[in-house]
Design a protein around this nucleic acid. Sequence first.
DNA 1: GACGTCTCTGTTAACGCTAACAACAATTGG
DNA 2: CCAATTGTTGTTAGCGTTAACAGAGACGTC
Lengths: 335, 335
Amino acid sequence: MAVHGPAMTDVARLAGVSHQTVSRVLNGHPNVREQTRLRVRAAIAELGYRPNGAARALVTGRSQVIGVVAQNTTLYGPASLLAALEQTAAEEGFAVSVGSVRNLDHRSISAAVERHLSHRVAGIVVIAPVESAGEALERLPKDVPLVTVDGDPSRPVPLVTVDQVAGARAATQHLLDAGHRTVWHVSGPSDWFDSVGRIDGWREALLAAGLVPPPLMPGDWSASSGYRCGQMLARMPEVTAVFTANDHLALGVLRALHEFGRRVPDDISVVGFDDVPEAAYFIPPLTTVRPDFDAVARASLQMLLSQIESGTGGALRQTVAPTLVARESVAPPRR
Amino acid sequence: MAVHGPAMTDVARLAGVSHQTVSRVLNGHPNVREQTRLRVRAAIAELGYRPNGAARALVTGRSQVIGVVAQNTTLYGPASLLAALEQTAAEEGFAVSVGSVRNLDHRSISAAVERHLSHRVAGIVVIAPVESAGEALERLPKDVPLVTVDGDPSRPVPLVTVDQVAGARAATQHLLDAGHRTVWHVSGPSDWFDSVGRIDGWREALLAAGLVPPPLMPGDWSASSGYRCGQMLARMPEVTAVFTANDHLALGVLRALHEFGRRVPDDISVVGFDDVPEAAYFIPPLTTVRPDFDAVARASLQMLLSQIESGTGGALRQTVAPTLVARESVAPPRR
DNA sequence: GACGTCTCTGTTAACGCTAACAACAATTGG
DNA sequence: CCAATTGTTGTTAGCGTTAACAGAGACGTC
C-alpha cells in the first residue's frame, strides 16, 4: 500500500526538462515548443503520471472540487439535481463532493459547509429549499463562491430556481381549461420554497379566473400524506379537480380516490409536479409538470464558475421554466 | 475574494506556541499539557481557524475523502445507497466525492476512478452492478483501498452485496405459500448482477418446490418495460402470480393488468423488490422485498476503513439479507 | 554591432501541514 | 548527586505543485 505514484519531477527527468515545463504542459501554457510538449506527454503516458490535486490545491488555494449541500438526496428532485450537477461539473473538470444533511437547519448546514470549506472546495452549491437554511447562508464567509438552488428568493444570494409559480399556474390553468369550476391543491410542507411557490401559482391562476381558492390541504411530499388528503377529497362530492405539489402526493391521492370508488379522470382530474419516470404508469397515467433539472444544474454551475473565475460575487438570479406534460389523469368534469 | 483564512502559524502565534503544538492539539496527540491545549483551542475559536485539508493531504498522502463511483444515481437503489454512504462517511469524518458515470463500461469507470485518484482519495467505493464494470476493476492500481457494492461475486475484489438470491427466494416462496401453482418473473437487465441474483433466487425457489420455471420476461428496471411485460401477462389466463425484479417494474405490470381488467390481488398476485417509499401507495399496496441500504453502506464503509487503516487488501465478502414486506398485492389464487 | 523584444526553459521560493528529531525541564532510580 | 526516563515543546525538512523571476537564444531594428 501507499506506493506513491510518480511525481512531476519524475516526469521531468524522463523527458529531460524541468518540472516547471511539465507543469506548463499540463496547464496548457502557450510558450512550450511543440516538440517538448510531445516529449513531456510521452513521459506522462509512460509513467502513468497523475497530477496531485492536493498539491495543486495547496498552492493555488482552491481545488477542482465543488461542494454540494443537499438534503434528502433520496427524493427524486434532489437526486436528479445532484446527478445533473455531477455530470455538468465533470465536463468542466470538477469533481463534486456531497454533503447531505438530515435537517436543513442552521447548524446542519453550517457544519456541512464547514466540512467543504476545510477541503478548500472551489465553490459551493446549496440545494436549500427551506426557510431555516436561509439564515445559515447569510452568515457564511463572503469569499466563497456560492450558488443556491431553489432557495429563498428574498435573500441577496445568487439563486437558480425552477419557476414554481409558473409551473403551478400552468397546472391549475390546465384544469380550468378542461372546464373545472375550481381546483383543489395538496401542497408540500409550508417551510419549503418549492411548496410556497406552487401554492402561489395555484392561487394566482384561480384568482385570475375570478375564483376564490378552496381551502388548502397541506401535505409533506410523501405518498402517505397524499393518501390522507385523498381520503378527505374523496368524501367531498363537489371536488372535481386536484393539483398536487408533487407526483408522490398525487400517487397517494389516486389511491385514496380509487378506494372510495371515485374514478380518475371521470369523476376527478389530478395533476402532479415533477414528472417522475413512473408517473406515466400510474393508474391512470399522470398529467404533471416537468422541471428541467439539467437546465437548473447547468445554470447553477455556470453561475458558480463565473464567480470562481471572475472573483466577483454578485447576486444573480436565474429561473428555469417547467413544462406541462399532459397525460390521461385530466378530463372535463361530468355534468 | 481569495481572502485566505488564518493558517496554523497564526493560531500558534496567538496562542504563544509553535505551529507544531497546534498540529498536535488538532490531531489529538497525547503529550500536550492541558493548559496549552485549552489556549490553542481558544485561539482556534477566536480566529475561526479551519485546517487546510489540501496541505494535510499533501503531506500525509491521502485526504479525508472517499470516492464513490456510481451509475444512474437517479434510481431509487443507487440514490439510497449513496445517501447512506454519505451519512456514514460523515460520521467517520470523511467527505464523499461522487463520480457518476453514464455507462458502466470499462472506459467510463476507469475515467471516474482516475479522477478520484488524482484527488488522492483515501479509498473508493464502486457501485458496480454490471458485468462490464468487472474488468475495469481488476486493472486498477492495487494500492488503493477499494470496495465494490453489488458487484461480481466471482471476482477477487472486496464486495458487499444485498443477498439478491435470498430476497428473490423469499418473494417467490411467499407467492407459493399463498397457494399459487407457479410464479412468473419479470427480470431486470441481464447484465446486472442484481438481476441475475434475483432470477437465480426465483428459479431456485421454484425448483425446490418441484416446479418447472415458466419463461422469463426480461425487463430493464423501468415502469415502461414492466408495462410491456404486463400486457403479455394479462393476456395469459393461467398467470396468477408475478414476481418483478423491482417496484417500478411492478408498477408497470399493475397498470397493464388494470387496463386488461385483471384485478390484483384477486386475479393475479404481484410482488416487487426495493420497497420504494411509494410502494405502499400503489394500487393495490405492493408486497415487496426491502434491502437494507444502511446496512450495506455501513458494511462497505467499515470494510473500506479497515483497508485504509491496516493497509491490507484482502478480498472480503459480506452479504446483507433483505426482508419481505407483506402488503395487499398478494392473495391466494381463485379456484 | 548594440539593443530591445520575443519565445522558450530553468531556478527558486512559497503554499500549510505532518513527521522526525532535538531540546529542555521535571521526575525517577540507584 | 548523577544518569536515565518521561513529558512537553520547538526546529527543521520535506510533501508536489504553481508563480515569479531570471536567463539563454533567435530575431528584428536602429
